[in-house]
């Protein structure tokens, strides 16, 4: 399961970077924001309503009774329409690097996500997963992989 995504600060609005300054890390001289599932609160960048925004990742703190208390959903679940009652929106989660089980790997654009609203209308995003390819499974030891945008690893 993918537990963190990283995006260079240059791809985020300055104001967002400032708000997330404690999540800024440097890798090889380049600054990036790491969106980690273990951070409190867990957040993710999403392209939503034509803007890059940072929204809550999943429902780990179980603050929403109606949403699953995780940060992921399965492609199959989405395609079967199991989320349709709460009007989900497919969104793109931009990322340069994605981490699974301690292994960071480069992605071309990012990961597909599903955005839903809380009762009060706040956006919450779940990452969409599918069964790992053999390659991905060997690389990360994970049986599920994020659905990447326009690529397969």
């Amino acid at each position: 399961m993918c537990t963190a995504v990283a995006l260079p600060t240059s791809e985020l609005p300055d104001i967002v970077v400032e708000q997330l300054i404690d999540r800024v890390h440097t890798r090889g001289g380049e600054r990036e924001v790491r969106f980690d599932w273990r951070s409190v609160p867990a957040l993710l960048p999403v392209w939503w309503n034509g803007r890059l925004q940072v929204v809550k990742w999943g429902n780990r703190d179980r603050s929403e009774r109606k949403l699953p208390p995780t940060g992921w959903t399965w492609r199959e679940t989405v395609e079967k329409g199991k989320w349709s009652a709460i009007e989900p929106e497919p969104v793109e989660v931009p990322a340069a690097y994605v981490m699974t089980n301690g292994v960071w790997f480069r992605v071309k654009q990012g990961v597909r996500g599903l955005l839903v609203r809380t009762r009060t209308g706040e956006p919450v995003v779940y990452l969409i997963c599918e069964p790992s390819t053999r390659y991905y499974r060997v690389m990360t030891r994970a049986t599920w992989m994020p659905v990447l945008i326009d690529e397969v690893i």
Binding site: G28, G102, V103, W104, M139
Partner: peptide, 16 residues
């Protein structure tokens, strides 16, 4: 092996 590499260099980025 990737597992040892990820420990030696936790911020390393891997590509296929």
């Amino acid at each position: 092996p990737i597992w040892d590499a990820a420990k030696l260099c936790p911020h390393g980025v891997y590509v296929k």
